[in-house]
């Protein structure tokens, strides 16, 4: 891998980030109404239009759009994400308070999804009977068609209210994650498992599998030593793309389970048109997404020897 390649990929990533920032900026500004009006036009506050105009000036909400754009981008670059109008605290403080919950949820959720997918895929190839195999292989299609919100509600109904396995009120610090993680992991594991099943089937037809069998390797050894890595490599890209799904899924999941993470924050910010908060969340999600995919791309040559060298030996 040349340094030029690295440079190009990082450049592309920055370009994507900038595009995400600009598009979300334009869209958020195009929304009718704004957070300041929503908060301060409340008749209970009894503010005069004069006073509201002053507040708007204080937030620089009246300056021309291009100036706001330039200022915001400058602020973002220097790490200043602005002020949340609704909460009256810096956006960065708000993010810092909510991020750990979401990170924890996303990380455990993704890990669970990956384990689930690998388990489904490999169990189906080890299944001794055809009916069992097709039964296991139909699990992903089932998973993919379940809506997240419905799954969340059903899990609470069954495990918390009926079986009383997980308390709803005052759950422990890990207990409160059990059901949200399950809700999040199920729909993400499905496409991963489907791709993996197909990859395993494709690798199993390769001549090098026959050679491995001819060496006397058992079926389990072949699956573990020869199929696994070859089948998992192409899924890495899918996993990176699914990360976007994870962010979207987290919003719904946190709302259903009342978790106080970025999802919940997003939901409230949308309700009150807290533009600064939304802008920061969009850029943060885009950054996470771009970073994950950049890592996946840079990881490939490390994991796959074929991508390491360009020219083969001749003889």
């Amino acid at each position: 891998m040349t340094s030029r390649y690295l440079f190009n990929r990082i450049g592309q990533a920055l370009l994507v980030l900038w595009a995400a920032f600009t598009v979300s900026f334009v869209l958020l500004q195009a929304m009718p109404g704004d957070a300041i009006l929503i908060k301060f036009q409340n008749p209970d506050l009894g503010l005069t239009p004069q006073q509201i105009a002053e507040i708007r000036a204080a937030y620089a909400a009246d300056s021309p759009l291009w100036l706001q754009y330039v200022q915001t981008i400058g602020n973002f670059l220097s790490g200043n994400f602005g002020y949340s109008v609704q909460a009256g605290v810096p956006v960065s403080a708000s993010l810092a308070a909510h991020l750990p919950v979401t990170l924890k949820l996303a990380a455990i959720g993704f890990l669970t999804a990956a384990i689930l997918a690998v388990a489904i895929a490999f169990l189906s190839s080890l299944a001794p009977f055809a009916w069992l195999r097709s039964a296991i292989q139909s699990v992903p299609s089932l998973f993919i068609s379940i809506p997240t919100f419905w799954l969340g509600i059903m899990l609470i109904q069954i495990f918390s209210f009926r079986l009383k396995l997980v308390p709803v009120i005052n759950p422990g610090p890990w207990q409160e994650f059990i059901l949200p993680v399950a809700t999040l992991a199920v729909p993400i594991s499905a496409p991963l498992a489907q791709v993996l099943v197909r990859n395993i089937d494709a690798v199993l037809t390769q001549p090098f599998i026959t050679v491995a069998r001819a060496k006397g390797a058992t079926q389990g050894r072949v699956l573990w030593r020869h199929v696994a890595k070859n089948a998992l490599l192409p899924t890495l890209t899918i996993a990176g793309v699914l990360f976007g799904e994870l962010i979207a899924g987290a919003v719904v999941t946190e709302t259903v389970f009342g978790l106080n993470g970025i999802g919940g924050l997003t939901e409230r910010a949308v309700g009150t048109q807290d533009v600064a908060v939304l802008q920061a969340i969009v850029v943060l999600s885009a950054a996470a997404f771009v970073a994950i995919n950049l890592i996946v791309d840079l990881l490939y040559p490390v994991l796959d020897p074929r991508l390491r060298t360009r020219s083969g030996a001749t003889a």
Partner: peptide, 27 residues
């Protein structure tokens, strides 16, 4: 299969047709 595993490689072995795809590309 289990019985064959003991003699494959040891007593009977195979030279396959297509050397291009008969080796695991990542090992």
């Amino acid at each position: 299969d289990r019985q064959f595993d003991t003699i494959r490689g040891a007593r009977i072995s195979l030279v396959p047709q297509d050397p291009g795809s008969s080796l695991n590309p990542v090992k």
